[in-house]
């Protein structure tokens, strides 16, 4: 039900305990798929599917999994879901799935997924685990979209493929503006991510021990 506790399970990972900016997990894909907003959007969708699915299934099985082999079981569940979403993307969003290339497959190794299964789903009810998966995946997606929007806007002058910076501003067409090439490189994502973390920690006052 929409209780206060359930709400905080979903909303917490959006800011206070965000998997990327606070726990600094899932950085690899955050750097790799954020050159354009559309790839980041699809990647976030894929992660929501996998994380909600894996948290629910692991939580359903939590009393059956022997704790010695729990990592293998959890990885099997996650890998299955990742393969399903990878095949779905190949079937229905072929172009974007080509751009995402290996990074959908690499969701298997995304620390957020295994981390939530281990830290939350093994100890909590199915409903709460599903909500926790949703919250964390959305927290991941939110940061991905922010980074991707900044990189696409400054790096390519567009958002979701739509030209934002007007043509006449560009050097070579009478203007002076030049797209920022650094934003297309991985260090650009590092810098944007760093600035986001800076902003968030200034606002929330969170400190690393």
């Amino acid at each position: 039900m929409a209780t206060r506790k359930n709400f905080s399970i979903v909303a917490g990972p959006l800011s206070r305990s965000n998997p990327i900016t606070t726990q600094v997990l899932g950085i690899c894909s955050a750097l790799a798929v954020t050159v354009k907003v559309d790839t980041a959007l699809v990647m976030s969708g894929a992660l929501i599917f996998v994380l909600v699915g894996s948290n629910t299934i692991v939580s359903a099985l939590r009393n059956l999994i022997p704790s010695r082999v729990r990592i293998i079981v959890m990885l099997t569940v996650i890998a299955t879901l990742v393969i399903v979403i990878d095949q779905l993307l190949k079937a229905f969003l072929y172009d974007i799935s080509k751009q995402l290339s290996i990074f959908v497959g690499l969701i298997i190794t995304n620390c957020i997924v295994l981390g939530r299964a281990e830290a939350f789903a093994l100890k909590n009810s199915m409903r709460e685990s599903a909500l926790d998966g949703l919250g964390n995946a959305m927290g991941y997606g939110l940061i991905l979209l922010l980074v991707a929007a900044a990189r696409e806007l400054f790096g390519s002058g567009s958002l979701l493929g739509l030209q934002i910076v007007p043509d006449f501003l560009y050097a070579g067409q009478g203007g002076w503006y030049v797209n920022n090439g650094l934003m297309l490189l991985a260090p650009g994502a590092f810098i944007i991510l760093g600035l986001l973390i800076w902003l968030q920690r200034t606002v929330t006052g969170y400190r690393e021990e």
Partner: peptide, 10 residues
């Protein structure tokens, strides 16, 4: 370095 990598053309 920022200018070098951001605007290599210039």
């Amino acid at each position: 370095a920022f200018i070098f990598f951001a605007y290599p053309g210039e």
